[in-house]
Computed example of a mutant assay.
Amino acid sequence: MDAASLTRELVSIPSHEDPARVGDRLVEWLETHTDADVERDDHGNVFARRGSGEQSLALVGHHDVVAPDDSQLDDDEYVFEADGDRLYGRGTADMKGSLAAMATAFSDADPAGELVFVSFVGEEQGGIGCRAAIDDGFAPDFAVVGEGSTGYSAAGVTDVAIAHKGRRGSTITARGAAAHASEPETGENAIYRALDAVDIVRDLPFPETSVLDHEVAGSLVATEIEGGSAWNVVPEECTVTVDERTVPGTRAPLDRVERLDGVSWAVEQDLPPMACGNGRFADVALEAADTVQDGTPEFVVKPHATDAGWLASRAGTTCLVIGAAEPGEAHTATESVSLAVVDRCEAIYRSIAETWA
């Protein structure tokens, strides 16, 4: 079965509430089409291993998806359709197209070392499956994560992402003392304290770094504010949410807001960024991508987090991100993937598996 056909099959299986069915199909497919050792761990992650060597390369995907749009669902089954080269439906771009390409590349490659195929669960819930696998000892030396890297340098070109940003979501809480609005001097206005904190956030420099001579710039934005209980009451509490797109090795010093009276700061989510520090591995991947397409691929930086961040930060894995999805496709009502690019990614993954070591 080729990558395009497997993509259609995987996309047809609902996996937004329970990814078990598509996990079942992956195990069955791997046992039928490969001679690999195939297993499913207690978390629902699917692993397959073949080849041997002192170091290991993992082809990494995930088989859970976000909830479909109403137009992508019919009587609890996924609706998908082809229009020319493109396949439309939930999970086509994120990321069953690249997952199918990884499975077929894993099957067909003559691996240069130990080759691992893994499909995680819970990626869309903050990398639950990946983190659990790492806690259980999963730590490949190298990994290619199949999230989207197509269309970054130029339309239709599949690039090699050598880094991606992370996300740190946090909450600033300002507390004061309630009072009647006609006598504001008898209270402490929490909104005013929160605005003083926002001024600090606004003046902080964006985090930035360099990865293999490519600049990676983060961002820092106050995104929500909530406070007050009535038009005639001095508010005693106000909260501000902050979205920080983090970069490898640094964070914005948001703790400075706690120098203000009555202000505290708490991190709610911290998805780690990723940086590839191995230029040779990156060059091997770029050469593989260059060989199989007419366009000229480049090293690029992805704006959002993937499981590569967990692998890099917690398992010490050297990671790259290469995949068929294009910017703006994932999580949309019109999500789609080019089946020709899925086949291209299969060729890239196979080439890397045969040459990386």
Rank of each mutant, 00 (worst) to 15 (best):
V66Q: 08
V198G: 05
T34D: 13
V11S: 11
V300K: 10
A139W: 00
L30V: 09
R131T: 03
D69H: 15
A36Y: 07
G309L: 04
P140M: 04
R49E: 13
E9C: 02
T209D: 05
A48M: 10
T241Y: 01
D307V: 11
E183C: 07
G227K: 06
V263C: 07
F80N: 15
D110A: 13
S219W: 04
G84R: 12
S119V: 01
H331R: 08
G218N: 03
E114Y: 00
E236D: 15
P140A: 05
C238L: 06
T186C: 07
D2C: 04
A190G: 06
D94C: 06
G148A: 07
N189E: 10
A143R: 10
F206L: 06
T334D: 15
T318F: 02
M274W: 12
G97W: 11
I348D: 13
E326D: 07
E258H: 00
D64K: 10
D2W: 05
I13S: 09
L57S: 09
A305K: 09
A133D: 00
D283K: 14
S56V: 09
E326L: 04
D85F: 09
A133H: 01
M95Y: 06
F299S: 12
F47C: 04
F120K: 01
E185I: 08
F117Q: 05
T334R: 15
L271W: 06
D243A: 12
T291A: 15
M102Y: 10
E28M: 01
G279Y: 00
D37N: 00
A275N: 06
E354V: 11
R90D: 04
A347P: 04
A194N: 06
A178C: 10
P303V: 01
R8G: 13
A222H: 06
V292Y: 11
E54Y: 02
A222R: 09
T173N: 08
A132Y: 01
E39I: 00
R251K: 14
V121G: 00
D42A: 14
